[in-house]
Amino acid sequence: MTTIYRDVYSFLELVKKTVMSLFLKPLRVKETFQQLYFVANGSLWIIVFCVCFAAVVTILESSFHMKLVIQNDSMVPGFASLLILRELGAVVTALLLTSRVGAGIAAEVGSMKVTEQIDALRMLGIDPIQFLLIPRLIATTLGCMILCVVANLICIFAAMIISDQVLGYTPSMFLTAMNRFVQFRDLIFSVVKAMFFGMTIPMISCFFGFRCKSGADGVGSATTQSVVFASISIIFLDFILSYTFSYFY
């Protein structure tokens, strides 16, 4: 138990230092853009591909269940869109970013730790948090928000096509049904969720990267742990945020 407390304390300490560095020290703009390119542009096609299939599954499963229960699936486009906006878009994007970007950050920072590059940075008087974490934090947060918007809209578009081709609801009928349930604030809440998820991923990845033990095993272990903990944190955060946002409805 003592180890868990110590780990939580270390993580909170890292969060505190990050927040202070974020507001007190100058930003590495070029590095931030490089990271943003890696996070957003680099993950775009993977995310689009995955959310398209997630949308297909959502719409078909919803239709199947509705037909099973009330023998009518006319409401499916509406609440499938709501499900996509409230949950699927943000969570799938964040989980995919965790496995691609989070693992990458943990491995990169872990390798730097193992090869004593982080110690070298400290020796040169450079704050590793300022140098490594802040650009990644900003890039992942912004990237996650951008990708969340793209994922949500592409997901709805894919759902619309499937509704037209499989369920027989024309795009106009789909949009009418969607309008019945979906509001603009659903997208806002989704982006807010993405922002929190985007902050969580580099924080956890860098935390495990900074604590990486020496050797190839250490880097592998840090990467695995960062993906696992980031995924768990995203699911947990999703619950908290969904519960909080439910008060606005």
């Binding site: 943003l36 390119y37 957003a40 542009n41 775009l44 793209v150 997208l187």
Partner: peptide, 14 residues
């Protein structure tokens, strides 16, 4: 520019 284009695309989608 590439990042900016993606950001602009997401704004258009909004």
């Amino acid at each position: 520019a590439k990042v900016g284009l993606l950001g602009f695309f997401s704004l258009v989608l909004i």
